[in-house]
Amino acid sequence: MIELLHDTLNFDFPEVHEEASCRIDFQRTLRIPDDNKEYPLPAGLGRFPVRHVDDYANKIPEEWKQHGGVLMPMYQSEALWLNFSGDYPFALKIAAGKINAVTGEGWKNALSDEPQDYVVIPEQPWLDGFAVGKGRIRQFVAMPLGEEYTAEEQITGDAIHGGIQIIAYPMKAEAYEKYCLRSSTLNKMTNEICYYDMDGCAMGLAPGGLMCQEIYDDPYGMDVWDRAHSARCFIHIVNSTHYKKVTDEFPPHRPPTISDYQQAGIPWFEYYADELSAIEGSKKLAGLDSIAAMKIKKGEAPLADNESVIPANLKTISVGARKVKEWNG
């Protein structure tokens, strides 16, 4: 089951194991420059607010009610990363607009290892974007559906789903007992009328700037995942300009510009987990146009606030120091 507590999705499977739980939150962050240079990981600047869609049933599109799940606000061109917490191993499939963020394939509930279409936590502490190559991702950046930028639109040609989709599979209880006892390394890692004009409120995720981030190979193998138990969630993304109309709450402030970020000395991060190998990334996702490239292709004005920078205040972190990416400065 999935519970929403403090803007965090809590996945619990007490029927599998009393410790089978993990948490996922959505971190506000800097949109890195989309200039084909590879950047380190930007810091988390706090959680996005997350709300039950059922609480706003008279103000959201009909399809969102059918999907169930939750909603969160994002500004156009705002970036996010997914923050995973919990010590119990889970296989997580993550999609944007029902396009798998690891493989670029369309949504399927089932896990696959040919190629691996999921991330494994706690080994994978974060996910910042679409896996476009070995050790490389393109940042998740919100764009309005219907303007051709999102991965969904570039791959399927349709602007239907948007948002983020997640399904979680816990490790089988017997495998958990075995691996926790066996490996000190693994242990250490840690229906009314819509009152508002909602046209343009739905957002999807588009590929932004390049970032160094490895998506790790499953170190356990497919057999350990309890495929009889899973829980999934549709996270709708509302344009922040509509968020107050829907929820009566103000969205978070706009994220900092790149120059604000650098001047404030907010750190960048390089993360190493030497014991783990990385997957190759998706050729399909690698072939997508980034937002800046798409703007040029469409003959639109260049992406604002997109000047190249040399990251200042670079910090190196390794396994066991997972939480430091959340910046509270």
């Binding site: 519970e3 039950h52 869609v53 059918q66 169930g68 799940g69």
Partner: peptide, 10 residues
């Protein structure tokens, strides 16, 4: 008793 996030049809 906790409030679960409802999963729908998608």
């Amino acid at each position: 008793v906790v409030r679960e996030i409802r999963d729908g049809d998608w």
